[in-house]
Nucleic acid binder design. Structure first.
Lengths: 206, 206
DNA sequence: ACCTGAACACCGTTCAAGT
DNA sequence: ACCTGAACACCGTTCAAGT
């Protein structure tokens, strides 16, 4: 009677994760990514920590890269939803909306340094069409913001897609320089303000 | 008599690399980085390809990360020298000098996608002070360029360091988006032109 | 449907030993 | 000084077998 309940290691609540193993893996993977980094992320160690055999993840992720891709996808989803919420509460004024968006983006990107690298890595070149697809809504959001700026006269006419790409590039670049310790984090606020000011003048009407 | 010369595998010229093993490793590593990527780079495979035992690299690189750091350092050195040569032949006009610099930077960054990721990776946070030091001359070069722009009146007064950081961030970001296939490479020239134009207007005098 | 556990072929790193 | 080669502890991936 007792043998069946006592065979599990301490901390493992159940032998099976009734379909929740996928989420458990993603959660543990994100924690490891945050505390240890991408290279240290091991499928076997993840499985061990969850209390499942090392072959079990195979049911939910074809291989290690598939799990990393899934993490990147959740990253894009969270970033998009944060920017969206920011814009929902940012009022009507375009410069204020832009400023709020840049702040949210750069904060997310510096709060999730390892995840940012995963999201924008060139690793998922071939295959991983799903990662690129997950990035789309975020670009669409930026595209819409720039279009609003053109309608309000704050942004000069021109291809709104390219204008938003340059903006995203600048935000991603600032975060990368800070995450890589090439620029001190104490400069973050000043740099984002300056980048926003320059963008407003540089992309603004003549 | 023949036994000493015939014991080596075909293709291995000599059993020992009289001090040139370090360069041989770096060269092979860069080739692997370019064709396979960072994760696929294995010290053992490198040693095998060169015809040396798998313990030999230890003499020249403390561990795998030390070799990756060395690669990143050569990357910064090459980028700096290319930008320097570009500036040496770019004439006096500031906008022309800026445009040439941006083109050289972004071309290097897209021609060496995997290397760029290594250079700007947040992986070398702790330790790897040498990698950050290797990036310094490049930043100094950009700093000097911006200072020239301020002297010629093409760039508004203000902290030239922060202005150059925003510029570097934008260039690195554009390259990252293209290397990660989030933006089609056919847009590269148009994007760099647009970014340069925006920078000149955004950072220019009022 | 979901997980186990052995097996395989690889790693990076360490270290005594050779020349 | 520089390299070898065995040893160790880890990987990711595959796959028959269990429930």
């Amino acid at each position: 009677m007792t043998e069946t309940t006592e065979t599990q290691a301490a901390g493992a609540e159940r032998p099976y994760h009734h379909g929740s193993l996928r989420d458990a893996l993603l959660g543990a993977a994100e924690a490891t990514l945050r505390t240890q980094g991408q290279e240290e992320l091991s499928l076997r160690e993840l499985a061990r920590g969850i209390g499942v055999s090392h072959g079990a993840p195979r049911r939910h992720f074809r291989d290690r890269q598939a799990l990393l891709d899934a993490l990147a996808i959740t990253g894009f989803e969270r970033l998009e939803s944060q920017v969206r919420r920011t814009l929902d509460g940012a009022g009507e004024d375009f410069p204020a909306r832009l400023r709020a968006t840049v702040n949210t983006f750069v904060r997310f990107a510096t709060d999730n340094a390892a995840l940012l690298e995963l999201m924008f890595s060139s690793k998922h070149r071939e295959g991983a069409e799903d990662v690129r697809a997950a990035a789309e809504p975020g670009f669409t959001l930026m595209f819409g913001l720039i279009t609003q700026g053109q309608e309000s006269g704050d942004v000069a006419p021109g291809d709104p897609e390219q204008v938003s790409i340059v903006l995203v590039a600048t935000m991603q670049g600032i975060a990368t320089l800070i995450n890589g310790d090439m620029v001190d984090v104490s400069l973050l606020d000043e740099l984002t303000d300056r980048a926003t000011d320059q963008f407003l003048r540089g992309a603004g009407p003549v």
